[in-house]
C-alpha cells in the first residue's frame, strides 16, 4: 500500500504542489467570508506566480501587480524591491514557477482537462501558436511597463488580467452590494476577457500562459540559466525530438524559453537525457 501511495505521489506530485501553492497563496479564509481585501504585513511579500493582490483570500502580493504599481511611482523611486524580487525568482526558478507555483496555471490545466471531457477540439501547437508566443512580450512592454510609466495606471491589471477578475473582481462584487452598484463598462470588459481566456484554455492547452502572460515572459528570459528546473544532458541527447513532440508548450527544445519544466518530456526521452538536476550533483538527475 505504501509503495502504491509513493507511486501515486510521484505521478501526481506536480498537481499536489500546484494545489498546495494555490491554497498557501490564498490562505486568508476570513477574507472570502467577509469579502474584504486583507492588509496584513505579509502583503508586502510577492509570491512567484500570478495571484491577484486583491483576491479576498490573498495573503501575499502579485509580482506583476507590484511591478506595475512600482513603475507608476518610478518617477519618485526606483522599484529596487520589486525588480530585485523578480530577478530572484527568475534566476532561481525561471518558468518552473509557471509549471509548479502558479495557481492560474493550475486553473488553465484543469480547464483544458474539462475541454477533453467535453470532447471539445484540442488545438495542438503549430507554427501559428509558436508565433503567437511572442505576443506576451509585446503585452509585457506595453501594458506592464509603458502604460504604468506614461499613464500612471496598472495597465495589465486594469485592462487584461483574467486572474484578477476571477480571483478578485468577481468574489468582491458578489460579496459587497456597494461594489455591485459601482461596476461599469470596465468590469464588463474584464469579464469578457476572462470568458475568452476560459474558452481558450478549454480548446488550447495553457493558452493564456503561452500567448498572454507577461510574468511568464519575464521568467522566460531566465529559463535557460535558472538554477532549478529541467536540464538536458547534451552528451546523452541524440536530437531525436521526442521531447519536443511530446510537449504541449511551444518549445524548440526542452528547457528553452517556452518550457514550464512540467517534466512530461522526462518520461518520454528514450535515452534518459532529461531530468531535474540533483542539488550539488550536476551530473546526476533526480526524476
Amino acid at each position: 500500500m505504501m509503495k502504491g501511495l509513493r507511486e501515486h505521489f510521484k505521478e501526481y506530485r506536480r498537481r499536489y504542489i500546484q494545489l498546495m501553492t494555490a491554497v498557501l497563496y490564498n490562505c486568508n479564509l476570513g477574507g472570502f467570508l467577509s469579502g474584504r481585501i486583507g492588509n496584513w504585513n505579509s502583503k508586502g511579500l510577492c509570491v512567484p506566480g500570478l495571484n491577484c493582490y486583491s483576491c479576498p483570500g490573498a495573503a501575499f502580493a502579485c509580482p506583476l501587480g507590484s511591478l506595475q504599481n512600482s513603475l507608476q511611482n518610478s518617477a519618485f523611486r526606483f522599484p529596487f524591491y520589486v525588480i530585485g524580487t523578480l530577478l530572484l525568482f527568475g534566476i532561481l526558478l525561471g518558468r518552473l514557477v509557471c509549471g509548479f507555483l502558479c495557481p492560474f496555471g493550475l486553473i488553465q490545466e484543469l480547464l483544458h482537462k474539462l475541454g477533453r471531457l467535453l470532447h471539445l477540439p484540442d488545438i495542438k501547437k503549430n507554427r501559428l501558436t509558436r508565433g503567437l508566443s511572442y505576443l506576451k512580450y509585446g503585452i509585457l512592454i506595453f501594458f506592464v511597463v509603458a502604460v504604468p510609466v506614461v499613464r500612471f495606471v496598472p495597465g495589465f491589471c486594469k485592462y487584461i488580467c483574467p486572474a484578477g477578475t476571477l480571483e478578485a473582481g468577481i468574489p468582491l462584487v458578489l460579496a459587497d452590494e456597494h461594489l455591485q452598484a459601482q461596476i461599469g463598462l470596465l468590469f464588463s470588459w474584464k469579464v469578457f476577457v476572462l470568458a475568452l481566456c476560459i474558452l481558450g484554455c478549454m480548446f488550447c492547452y495553457r493558452s493564456f500562459c503561452r500567448f498572454i502572460c507577461p510574468l511568464g515572459a519575464i521568467y522566460s528570459f531566465f529559463n535557460s540559466t535558472a538554477f532549478f528546473g529541467i536540464k538536458v544532458k547534451n552528451d546523452k541527447c541524440t536530437g531525436c525530438g521526442v521531447c519536443v513532440r511530446t510537449c504541449k508548450m511551444d518549445i524548440k527544445k526542452a528547457g528553452d524559453r517556452e518550457c514550464i519544466h512540467c517534466g512530461e518530456c522526462i518520461k518520454t526521452c528514450p535515452v534518459g537525457a532529461i531530468g531535474y538536476p540533483c542539488p550539488g550533483k550536476s551530473s546526476a538527475f533526480k526524476n
Binding site: N69, R77, Q182, I183
Partner: peptide
C-alpha cells in the same frame, strides 16, 4: 536590490497603495 528597496522605503510603502488601486484595476469603479 531587495535589500536596497527595503532600506530605501520599506516594502510596505508601495504595497500599501495597491489596495485602492487594485479596486480600480479589477474593473470596479
Amino acid at each position: 536590490m531587495i535589500s536596497a528597496g527595503i532600506i530605501d522605503h520599506g516594502f510596505r510603502d508601495v504595497m500599501g497603495k495597491a489596495i485602492i488601486i487594485c479596486l480600480e484595476c479589477v474593473g470596479i469603479g
